[in-house]
């Protein structure tokens, strides 16, 4: 059964149904590495979205020209070019954000979300749908890591987007800004996702039993 794909369905698929962070578990390094400040999450997410949309578009346009044997190096060169582009742009216009994201910007090249989408979507679908997929996946990634970084910033610094959220007496929990806090926060969020998934499964199986 092949469902008809249109711009909206592909976009929503990336944003929610196959959310790259919570469902596909891709691109974990930036997800955990830079999510100590909500602003970093937004910046990283949008930079990745930019690369994802353009790499998807170009790979989709070239999908019938690139020989199968050299596709991985070709994809990498396309992706790396856009990463270099956004890296230089950020260095010129947003130097502070670029500095706080550090090595993670050049490392967008090896973000497995981009690779996975190039291989499993853009290489098989027309350009318009590939843009939709890139947008959906990219924004899905942005929303997830912004959410994660809001939680970490709230408990780790008592702020969200730099605004004081916690009462004065709150003692910031520094561990949230460090490596263990990242792993554990994401782990707890995944528990929530699993709860929802199990609940949906139960509901469906009850429905089937009733039918």
């Amino acid at each position: 059964m092949h469902k008809k794909q249109n711009f909206l369905s592909v976009f929503l698929n990336g944003l929610i149904v196959e959310n790259p962070t919570f469902v596909l578990m891709l691109g974990m390094c930036p997800t955990l590495g830079i999510t100590t400040q909500a602003m970093n999450g937004v910046g990283m997410g949008l930079a990745t979205t930019f690369v994802l949309v353009f790499s998807n578009l170009f790979i989709s346009l070239l999908r019938n020209i690139i020989p199968d044997k050299v596709r991985i190096p070709s994809y990498i060169v396309i992706i790396a070019s856009f990463v270099t582009l956004i890296d230089l742009m950020m260095q010129a216009f947003l130097p502070d954000l670029r500095a706080s994201l550090g090595t993670y910007i050049p490392l967008i090249t090896v973000n497995c979300i981009i690779f996975a989408r190039a291989e499993s979507f853009a290489a098989k679908n027309p350009p318009i749908l590939s843009i939709a997929d890139g947008l959906g996946m990219g924004l899905g990634f942005t929303v997830s890591i912004t959410l994660l970084s809001c939680i970490r910033e709230l408990f780790g610094s008592g702020t969200i987007f730099g605004l004081q959220m916690m009462p004065e007496a709150y003692q910031p929990m520094a561990v949230m800004n460090q490596v263990p806090g990242g792993f554990i926060t994401l782990g707890l969020m995944m528990i929530l996702v699993n709860f929802i998934r199990l609940a949906i499964q139960n509901k469906n199986s009850r429905k089937e039993a009733a039918a």
Partner: peptide, 22 residues
């Protein structure tokens, strides 16, 4: 528990491991 198996378990395990490296 069922909801811990797979990625949540791995992530929280990794987080606790990271504490011991600190």
């Amino acid at each position: 528990p069922k909801w811990m198996q797979g990625s949540p378990g791995a992530l929280i395990t990794a987080g606790l491991m990271a504490i011991s490296f600190m």
